[in-house]
Nucleic acid binder design. Structure first.
Length: 850
RNA sequence: GCGAGCGUGGUGGAAUUGGUAGACACGCCAGACUUAGGAUCUGGUGCUGCACAGCGUGGGGGUUCAAGUCCCUCCGUUCGCACCA
């Protein structure tokens, strides 16, 4: 029979669905297993990144199911977001309609991949049944002080017309549209993620199932620094300046003070200064710059406020400057400058001719003249009673002194800032607040939730479309009944994805975010799979939400995702022309651009993207090769965490392999349907060999799936098939046929998680009972995975000189005797003294001669 | 600058613990079957050399009977963060 996937792939997808074999229920005596892949944004089409992500998840899920776990494997849609709104503007379509249609199309595409999802748990975040619970949580967080509104400088993307979180700014550009991000002063809603900074950081050391690079990125992003807060009195006023420093040991060398231009004191100190105008102009020249331009300018610029403060340990006066390189949103926005031991302060001191006092010596006898800043550790000098102390010890000693004086204390600072969640866009969850002239910001009462997104909206205006929906904006205050104005900000879409994995546990629950019993049964997620691009944003937010919900008493876990697998990108060669930019294959002929006949620039391998014209469409591939081939290729081409280089011939190779499996099994349907039973024990030479292949392959495939080495798991099955092809001509007696029958049945089972359609079809063609998808995963016996004869390598002085074959149970003495007697070994040992003999059981003999 | 990772044939990649480097696949070569083959099957394929042999996991050094794997050092490369006090 010829392998023709089109005959049966869709048939099985339909049958699986009709028989509800992937429905999950918490009422099971089996051990639970939660397998989760990052849910897709309904852009309209699945791409190869999705295929890879979901193929990996599906193998894990199907394998666990066959291993007897109670598996939950849900899917849904991250359905709010800007693309829907942009599409609405361009095509005069409603975002809801656009999103609905995309979901429908992509749902069909996912189903066409044969994924083992429990579709009854499907959620779409744009539905009121979903987002009303988010609004409820928002209010609960507000009650606990974890959601708040403040005026602050925010990242503003003009092209998207909205605010962005810090995590969503990449190289000063919008993560979504790559246009420049500017700073803007706005009243915004924030989530107090900084309250959890310490725990979010500490727990990165307990997440043993996460890859080191993701944990490192999170740690980096949270950015903990420990040091001290030190307070300085300002001369001639009652004001004080508090700084944060990681190096209190250098306090005796602090010779001047720096304020961020945005620091409230900067303005205050200039109040009665004769240079007030000049100073304000200086501040404006810096704050007026974009964040990017400000970072770009490495030149130190400062302005003397005319005021001085007092060093709390030397009692020396320190001039207070406003400096361009001090950031308001880190630490306290003020820095004690220690020019001798900080490169930036050193440059500043040189430029403005400020005193440089060395207080740390690298070694006890190093020279005192300084030509550059020394930022390392060492021993204190010119530091009063601390002279001679190591900088490390001095850090705590000086903080102790400050604590006694009441001018400082130990402190920890994080780089992480609160999560700005306000978005000035339509297509998102409305922030459930009402502004009343009398009562201020009032939460929408629970009985009035959800605050529904109005349907009747015009998208032809600039700015937030919600602002112009009068019947939405105009409302009454829930407290006093006066006319009031409704909040028109919607939430960042990362809010929806911060708890969707909880909603999956009880997706239809209508009394709250989730049914606590269900969540506490299914959570945590045992295996999470997704792209590394979410290493910081989504994964950090979801961890934060989990901890918030835990502290509110709804769940009993600290971390949502036990194990995380970040899959690599799918890449393909690009081609480009000097004048016509990126070219797709049809625009290249004989290495020349078809538009201008000039040679194309040699292809580079890059992530598939429309703009680079190097995408391949999974739909086309499924039509040509079938879903099984596409799945198999994305698993076989590389280990899951590495990049895949797209290769058309690699896909064909996978297709060939599946054809081989199909032919091998269908050529022996008579045997499979016959009365000959499966073999329990090997009988005879060929049968023993077959047993060896079966058990060794099951062992290798099982362990490889469990450690996510799908590429080598597939390779093991390929070897198995190659062996069976050779063995199929040797089926002379019943015992052999019996063993071969076992081999074929095992093969089908091993293939089931990878290529479920062909496995199911073969299972049915062989008249086997039930669905292979629900069958047990094959087991192996260690004793059958070993050859009776083993090959031993013989090394003389570290070089392999011979290989000998011995029975498996051969004793050490016998092996060594046999190797010394080997004709290839004798010339190397003749007339020499044997000084050492090492036998590594079953592997090699190492002989040292002199 | 800080942090994390990677470096193996023509290509993608194998090699849990130090123990026969290059599994499996792509590509290429040869053969078989064919009117034909871009189908299928079989065999070959790290490099040098006629075989014996020698050389080979980014470079150099070290530990060891034995190193892709451990240690030191240098080089290259990818990713994240970065005027973070």
């Amino acid at each position: 029979m010829k392998y023709n996937f089109a005959d049966f792939e869709e048939k099985w997808q339909k049958i699986w669905e009709e028989n509800k074999i992937f429905r999950a229920s918490s009422s099971s005596s089996l051990k639970k297993y939660y397998c989760l892949e990052m849910f897709p944004y309904p852009s309209g089409n699945i791409h190869m990144g999705h295929v890879r992500n979901y193929a990996i998840g599906d193998v894990i899920s199907r394998h666990k199911m066959m291993c007897g776990f109670n598996v939950i494997h849900p899917i849904g849609w991250d359905a709010f977001g800007l693309p829907a709104e942009n599409a609405a503007k361009q095509n005069n379509r409603h975002p809801a309609e656009w999103t609905r249609e995309n979901i429908k199309k992509m749902r069909h595409q996912l189903k066409r991949m044969g994924l083992s999802y429990d579709w009854s748990r499907e959620v779409a975040t744009c539905l009121p049944e979903y987002y009303r619970w988010e609004q409820q949580l928002f209010i609960k967080m507000w009650e606990k002080g974890l959601a708040y509104k403040k005026r602050s400088g925010v990242n503003w993307c003009e092209s998207c017309g909205t605010v962005l979180a810090n995590e969503q700014v990449e190289d000063g550009k919008c993560w979504r549209c790559s246009s420049d991000v500017v700073q803007k002063e706005l009243e915004q809603w924030f989530f107090k993620i900084t309250e959890y900074a310490g725990e979010l950081l500490d727990c990165t050391y307990t997440l043993l199932g996460w890859s080191e690079n993701v944990l490192a990125m999170q740690r980096n992003w949270i950015g903990e620094s420990s040091g001290a807060e030190i307070t300085f009195d300002i001369l001639g006023t009652d004001e004080k300046i508090t700084v944060f420093s990681t190096r209190p040991d250098t306090l005796y060398g602090a010779t001047f003070m720096l304020l961020a231009p945005e620091h409230p004191l900067a303005d205050k100190l200039l109040e009665d200064s004769p240079q007030r105008e000049e100073g304000l102009a200086f501040i404006k020249s810096i704050t007026g710059e974009s964040k990017e331009a400000r970072m770009e300018d490495k030149q130190k610029k400062g302005f003397f406020t005319g005021r001085n403060c007092i060093n709390p340990v030397t009692y020396e006066q320190m001039p207070i400057y406003i400096a361009n390189y001090v950031l308001m949103d880190y630490g306290t926005g003020a820095v004690m400058a220690v020019p001798a031991h900080d490169e930036r302060d050193f440059d500043f001191a040189k430029k403005y001719e400020l005193p440089i006092v060395q207080v740390i010596q690298p070694k006890e006898d190093s020279p005192e003249d300084i030509t550059e800043a020394y930022a390392g550790e060492g021993f204190l000098i010119q530091s009063d009673t601390f002279d001679g102390m190591s900088s490390k010890n001095a850090r705590s000693a000086i903080v102790n002194l400050l604590e006694k004086q009441g001018s400082g204390k130990k402190s920890v600072t994080y780089r992480l800032r609160d999560w700005g969640v306000s978005r000035q866009r339509y297509w998102g969850t409305p922030v459930p607040f009402i502004y009343c002239g009398k009562c201020g910001a009032v939460p929408v009462p629970d009985k009035d939730l959800p605050v529904l997104l109005p349907e009747n909206v015009k998208f032809d205006t600039h700015g937030n479309p919600l602002d112009s929906v009068q019947e939405f904006v105009n409302t009454v205050c829930p407290k006093c009944g006066d006319p009031a104005r409704r909040e028109t900000d919607t939430m960042d879409t990362f809010v929806e994805s911060s708890w969707y994995f909880l909603r999956y546990c009880s997706p239809q629950y209508d009394k709250g975010m989730f049914d606590e019993t269900e969540v506490n049964y299914w959570m945590p997620v045992d295996q999470y799979i997704g792209g590394v691009e979410h290493a910081v944003m989504h994964l950090l937010y979801a961890r934060f939400f989990t901890k918030v919900l835990r502290d509110m008493g709804y769940i009993n876990i600290d971390e949502p995702f036990d194990n995380l697998l970040t899959q690599g990108m799918v890449c393909k060669e690009t081609q480009r022309c000097h004048t016509h930019g990126w070219l797709n294959p049809s625009e290249v002929k004989d290495g020349n651009c078809v538009h201008c006949q000039t040679p194309v620039i040699a292809g580079r391998t890059e992530k598939m993207s429309k703009s680079k014209k190097n995408v391949v469409d999974p739909d086309d591939l499924i039509k040509t090769f079938g879903a099984d081939t596409l799945r198999l290729f994305s698993l076989f081409a590389a280990p899951p965490d590495k990049e895949i280089d797209w290769s058309e011939s690699g896909v064909e190779g996978c297709y060939r392999f599946i054809s081989r499996v199909f032919r091998l099994v269908t050529d022996h349907l008579d045997l499979l349907k016959s009365d000959i039973p499966e073999a329990d024990v090997p009988q005879g030479e060929v049968s023993t060999e077959i047993f060896l292949y079966i058990h060794a392959t099951v062992k290798k495939t099982t362990t490889d799936i469990e450690r996510f080495q799908f590429n080598t798991a597939v390779a093991a099955i390929m070897e198995f098939v190659n062996s069976l092809y050779i063995l199929q001509d040797k089926l002379t007696d019943t015992a052999t046929k019996s063993a071969f029958k076992s081999a074929l049945i095992t093969l089908m089972r091993l293939c089931a998680p990878f290529t479920p359609h062909v496995a199911e079809e073969l299972w049915s063609l062989a008249s086997m009972h039930g669905f292979i998808s629900c069958e047990g995963w094959p087991t192996y016996k260690e004793e059958y995975t070993l050859h009776n004869n083993i090959t031993i390598a013989v090394q003389i002085n570290g070089k392999i000189r011979a290989k000998i074959t011995v029975p498996r149970n051969c004793s050490e003495q016998e092996v060594i005797e046999k190797s010394l007697a080997d004709e290839k070994v004798v010339p190397y040992t003749k007339g020499r003294i044997l000084t050492k003999k090492i036998y590594v059981h079953g592997k090699l003999v190492s002989i040292v001669v002199k």
